[in-house]
Design a protein around this nucleic acid. Sequence first.
DNA 1: TGCAAATAACTTGTATGCAAGTCAAATGCT
DNA 2: AGCATTTGACTTGCATACAAGTTATTTGCA
Lengths: 142, 142
Amino acid sequence: MKAQDCIFFQLAKASQTGVKFWSQIVASFGVTAVQAMVLGFLHEADQISSRELGERTQLDSATLTGVLDRLESGGLIERTPNPADRRAIRVVLTTKGKATTLEMRTVMEEANAEFLHDLSDQERQTLRELLGKIRSAHHKGG
Amino acid sequence: MKAQDCIFFQLAKASQTGVKFWSQIVASFGVTAVQAMVLGFLHEADQISSRELGERTQLDSATLTGVLDRLESGGLIERTPNPADRRAIRVVLTTKGKATTLEMRTVMEEANAEFLHDLSDQERQTLRELLGKIRSAHHKGG
DNA sequence: TGCAAATAACTTGTATGCAAGTCAAATGCT
DNA sequence: AGCATTTGACTTGCATACAAGTTATTTGCA
């Protein structure tokens, strides 16, 4: 078996290609690929705790603290206290954060389509299914 | 479109799942996932320059310098001078590096099979093809 | 009620990834 | 030969990842 045939290598490199592609697109909004993803999730569910945000984005709490720090410095989100649990925070989009996120969501759809431009509709569907199958198979101790 | 349906997110998370899986396996050899990958490529082509190794592994020269540093500290590789080009180095596996790499290649095949355990032969084949298609479509300015 | 165990966010240390820049050596062109 | 350009490896700075540990707070249970 050649190293290039290793599924871990293939996944990692396809992922890197995607992240680079997406990074260049969202760079014009002043955010990184990961930051853009976090904003996208916040657009779906605002006011959630760091823990829940980490669950949805599949980001480690250590990683997320840094990402939130930079988003907060950029004025895109705010950390507000949660009166019901003083250990937790509530992450909220600022006005600027909401505007940026809205703009990016349009761009994201275009980017998704363009990134998979060379694949047929059937292939895109299959790819998403297979990637999902992998993740669910290895979810928490599979 | 939900953030979870973003192909960049799906690729990144499937990749992370793979890297974590592979990392746990190679940890017993005292190397990281990336280090194991580099060793795998060196097993195919020893004595190559850092530039060529970077081409094959798709690792940035900045990243590769650090990876080679740690492999060299671990006694798995050595940097030797290239008399034909004094700018370049030649990366060679040590005896220990060769032994480790040999052992790992067996484990790698098992890990590949186990990681894709929930997929049929047809699905595995399709997945590899689609990932390859993505990478080649975006290779150097696509 | 009181205290051990669990939890939320953060911190620390190490390893990629990548853009940008440095330095020495090799190349190309006149 | 002489010199600008290119190249190979390295360095720096910043942004993820993630294991491991800290602190304050909350929960669960005797």
